[in-house]
Simulated scan of single mutants.
Amino acid sequence: MDLLKELWWVIPIFLLIAGGLFTVNQGTIGVVTRLGKYHSIKMPGLNFKVPFLDQLYKRVSIQNRSVELEFQAVTVDQANVYFKSMLLYSVLNIDEDTIKNVAFKFISEKDLMQALIRTVEGSIRAFVSTKKQAEVLNVRRDIVENVKEQVDVQLESWGYHLQDLQINDITFDEAIITSMSKVVASNNLKAAAENEGQALLITKTKAAEAEGNAIKIAAEAERQAAQLRGQGVALFREEVAKGMSQAAEQMKQANLDTNVILFSMWTEAIKNFAEYGKGNVIFLDGSSEGMEKTMRQIMAMQQMDGKKI
């Protein structure tokens, strides 16, 4: 008890020191003021501030933060465009000047959000106002790049950096959407008609080429067949002539009349007519004068073939 009475003064000092201890969470930076004026920044972990003089003014988050935006813009041809986007930003760095700027630039987080949203919306509206309604859907990347280029400079003066801007949805008024759908449908019908026409043209062209090739092949086959038939007839006549010459020579050697050969050929022809006529009616002159006339004609043909040979 005597010892406690002697060390009573240690207890207030311990409480005073304990009251000056505080922690800063990971992902945040502590900003300390002394008598209402900026004094220092404190890193994550256990820190100490002078009791009654220092105050933990704010914990500044250095983590990435996001905010969703929904707003309207008007194109140069007076079409309403509705945007839905996501903005990702963070503190520029953990330098003392940057953290000091972030801590004291805006009164509250709400004021920062309002300024940030209005800055991004204003930049997008200014860009869209120079484009036509038909161009907006094709310049999504240009909008993002333009906003990053302009807004990032402003954010850096506040101690922040624009990490990413995503435009998730771009829509128009119902009347514009309906008209755009009709344009797309008509373009699709036009493309379909052109494709169908090209397909039909290709089909007919290929069919014509096939038919032409078939005609060429048939004509070539007919030409070759006619050539072969002609060669066959020529060979037949040549063989007939040779046979008749040999037969006539043998008849002469036997002192017989060569007209017997022609008569035999005539009777063989009549026999052939009867066998292969297939019911056709053939009129022949059976008189002696008719036979003599026919024999003279055969002899004349024989003489002509002999001259050709």
Rank of each mutant, 00 (worst) to 15 (best):
F106T: 02
I124P: 01
R34W: 00
I17E: 01
E268A: 14
G122R: 04
G159D: 05
T23F: 15
A175I: 15
L16N: 01
I261L: 15
A79Y: 04
Q133R: 07
S123R: 02
G232Q: 14
F104N: 06
V147Q: 02
L69N: 08
D111K: 04
I176S: 04
L256D: 08
R296L: 15
F104H: 09
F83R: 08
N188S: 10
G243S: 12
I170P: 05
G159E: 03
G45E: 10
A226V: 07
F172H: 10
I29D: 13
I298S: 01
K58E: 10
K110W: 11
I282S: 01
V60T: 02
R65Y: 00
N280I: 07
L256H: 07
I117D: 10
V233N: 10
F22A: 05
L87N: 03
F273R: 10
A185D: 13
Q227C: 07
R140G: 00
Q150S: 13
Y82C: 04
A79I: 11
N168C: 06
L15M: 12
S245I: 07
T98K: 06
D257T: 06
M295R: 10
T203V: 12
T23A: 14
M299W: 10
V260S: 07
R229W: 09
Q166R: 14
N64T: 13
R34Q: 11
S129W: 00
N259K: 15
S186Q: 14
I176Y: 08
F83M: 02
A219I: 11
F236S: 14
